[in-house]
Amino acid sequence: MQHYHYIFTGSGLSALMTVYELLLSGKFDDKSILLIDENTKKVNDRTWCFWDENNLFDEIVSKKWNQAVFANEKFNRVLELTPYQYKKINGLDFYELVFKKISEHKNIHFLNQKVVDFTELGNHCVVKTEQETFTCNKIFNSIYNPEVVTAQTKFPLIHQHFIGWFIKSKEAVFTPNCATFMDFSVEQKGNTRFMYVLPTSENEALLEYTLFSKDLLSKEEYESEIQKYIKNLGITEYEIIEKEQGNIPMTCYPFWKHNTKNVINIGSAGGWTKASTGYTFKNASKKSKALVQFLEKSISTSLDMTDFRKFHKKDKFWFYDLLLLDILSSKNELGSKIFSSMFKSGNSTVIFKFLDEETPIWEDLQVIWRCPKMMFVKALIKRLLKL
């Protein structure tokens, strides 16, 4: 039975981010590392977007926008994003970047198999695939188990679910330097529903029909709404170049309570997705850097003192997100009102900084005061009775 220092069960965004940070650190070259995933990561299966004022993975950013539109049925506002830019990364470009880096290190291996079980046994762990069994010192698990969340009612679960079409139109209707961040002018139908548009030229764009809600729709309903939106843009002829779809869990469930001394849950399995927005890429980058710094402080050349139960720190932003999800869980139709109140006249730089969880309390209040106060007061009272 082969033994490794670290085994990653799953090799999605957060796992690859963490391995990438381990390599950049240079302090883990003596650690044998195994990534196990049934997906070979050789296709462009998703895109990630994020706002950034630095150069985060700029070498693989495929498109940048300096402006973004927020709209509902009553107003349309163009947001100047400076000092941020809104950026897009294709999944395959990220996979290729990380696996090229991995190929330069003999201590890291990838296994294309399905993990069926893992467990901690005293001071070591066991990982089983459909074909083999391995032992290791530490497990980094990114395999999301929805039953962990659905089996309880204390913390709500909402899905960010969407279908997107990348189209090329006959008419030049898009503004290449301006993304549509949220367009709530679409019919809400008792939910939080919006269109998300990422133009790459005057006649090419990705259009995603997106919901923050408990229940998913039929494929036909998503695509029918995309067709309506395309027609309303004045497009009469177009071809669909590519399609994508996704379902991102949005919850403040305390996944970290399932961490043990030698097993840590990362990615969606660890609550690394920003609960109030579903954004993942920037959060995964921050969390992976923090995790590697935590490991660096916990290890020495002769002794590994890492205890994953000590990694997570709960903060104010977790509680802010929890209140929003409480509201959307009970009254899902209020999403447009809440987000519109923030973006109608608020300072967009402060809002994005707030959503990045980088604001001090006085900037938190600049955003919070713009939200409908009574619904949050009621949510606060109900939540305090639950905690």
Rank of each mutant, 00 (worst) to 15 (best):
Y4P: 01
I7V: 08
I7Y: 00
S11Q: 09
L13I: 12
A15E: 01
M17E: 12
M17K: 01
I33G: 05
E38C: 06
K41L: 08
V43L: 11
D45C: 04
T47W: 04
W48K: 01
E53M: 13
E53Q: 14
E59N: 13
S62L: 05
K63T: 14
Q67V: 08
A68E: 08
Y84L: 04
Y86V: 05
K88F: 05
N90S: 05
D93T: 12
D93E: 14
E96W: 02
V98K: 09
I102P: 01
S103K: 15
E104M: 13
K114D: 06
D117E: 06
L121W: 00
G122S: 11
N123W: 07
H124P: 00
H124F: 15
V126T: 03
K128F: 01
K128N: 10
E130G: 08
Q131T: 15
T133D: 06
T135H: 10
N137H: 12
N137E: 15
S142Y: 05
P146I: 13
E147W: 07
E147G: 04
T150M: 11
T150P: 04
A151H: 09
Q152P: 03
T153N: 15
I158Q: 03
I163Q: 12
E171M: 08
T180G: 02
T180S: 09
F184S: 01
Q188Y: 06
R193M: 07
M195I: 15
Y196S: 04
V197Q: 05
E202I: 09
E202P: 02
L206C: 09
L207G: 04
L207K: 08
S218K: 15
E225G: 01
Y229M: 13
Y229S: 08
E242D: 08
K243N: 02
I248G: 03
M250S: 07
T251G: 02
T251A: 09
F255H: 08
N262P: 01
G267A: 12
S268C: 12
A269T: 10
G271E: 12
G271L: 13
G278S: 04
K287P: 02
L295W: 09
K297Y: 01
I299A: 00
S302T: 15
D307S: 02
K310L: 15
W318D: 14
F319L: 15
L322S: 10
L322I: 03
L325F: 05
I327P: 06
L328Y: 05
L328M: 09
L328S: 04
S329K: 12
S330N: 14
S330P: 02
K331T: 13
E333N: 03
G335M: 08
S336T: 14
S340L: 13
F343G: 02
F343Y: 13
K344R: 14
S348T: 12
V350T: 15
F354E: 09
E357Y: 08
E363C: 00
D364S: 08
Q366T: 13
Q366H: 05
C371Y: 00
K373C: 07
K373A: 14
F376I: 09
R383Y: 07
R383E: 11
